[in-house]
Design a protein around this nucleic acid. Structure first.
Lengths: 162, 162
DNA sequence: CCGTCGAGGTTCAAGCTTGAACCAAATGCG
DNA sequence: CGCATTTGGTTCAAGCTTGAACCTCGACGG
């Protein structure tokens, strides 16, 4: 283990620095737009949006957590806030009362509908519209691959010390 | 303004979802490794690492803030913690005493040196090693472009309402 | 049956981030 | 000059995230 690590070469470092910079800046830029225009964080928006795209506008909490890549703990806190604002409701799952589900309310639906255009415009402005369609395809592949590797690594880790 | 927005097509949405997922997961995966192995957040590491790569291991605070894409406020808080741990020092800039600089201490340098291999290994594991060299080049270009667009948008905004 | 284990969720304290308010030193600029 | 603005930086409260501890219920083994 204490042998000389494989450092990044020039290209690799350049790619990593660019990605790091994106990782720091893009989330706050998107957050800022949603916060200013709709008083929602990006994460809030993802939660509401995930519900809005589901038949019945309802999801079990753990399913929702995995869709938005969050811990149950974080989700639970966020749901509390969104519920207080009347954007969704928590209730026992009628199919299996030991589970809970989140249900988007009418107000929640309306808010997603109101927020979506501005959010999509921001995504276009920051990401999509500056890229060629080849680059968009490349982005899909690369981001998909990275996500997959992160997931696999997490799975390995939990297998090892779980 | 209330006209029908340009929604994302299939490819675009796929790319955006993949990128969003990356944005949520990669930072916490990298954070987790550094926190576990060196008791540093990714942001802490970037700060120390930026200093360590500079001649004199010193940077003016606002230069440092812009290198790590953070507000002065956030940087100031982080510097306070790192200074308390003895990893760096804040002192007036000798060239122009109205500025302050952060100086990496010996202990800070040693910590960066100790943390770097594990961090690079994580970057390889999560990002670099799963990509072809074409994909690495594409990633550079795409991430660079996105970052640039975010910066430009920020500049426009501040020009407009500044 | 009884114990215990895991899955689904919630809670709480500790820590981090954010934005607005603030201070001091320089730099206009009328 | 003299006042206002800008630049560099800090601070504080409010809000958000995290992880560990906890609770409950069903499943499973003995």
């Amino acid at each position: 283990m204490p042998e000389e690590p494989r450092w990044l070469n020039e290209c690799e470092r350049e790619a990593w620095l660019a990605l790091a910079s994106l990782m720091f800046k893009l989330p706050s830029a998107l957050d800022a737009q949603l916060l200013r225009d709709n008083d929602l964080t990006l994460f809030d928006y993802f939660v509401l949006s995930a519900l809005s795209m589901t038949p019945g506008r309802t999801l079990r909490l753990s399913a929702l957590a995995s869709q938005v890549s969050s811990s149950l703990s974080r989700l639970s806190n966020v749901l509390k806030r969104l519920e207080r604002r009347g954007l969704l409701r928590r209730e026992p799952d009628p199919d299996n009362p030991r589970y809970n589900r989140a249900v988007l309310t009418e107000a929640g639906w309306d808010l997603v509908v109101a927020a979506a255009p501005g959010h999509v415009a921001a995504v276009r402005r920051f990401v999509i519209d500056g890229l060629t369609s080849k680059q968009i395809t490349a982005l899909s592949e690369v981001a998909g691959r990275v996500t997959q590797q992160v997931n696999e690594a997490a799975a390995e880790d939990s297998r090892r010390d779980g």
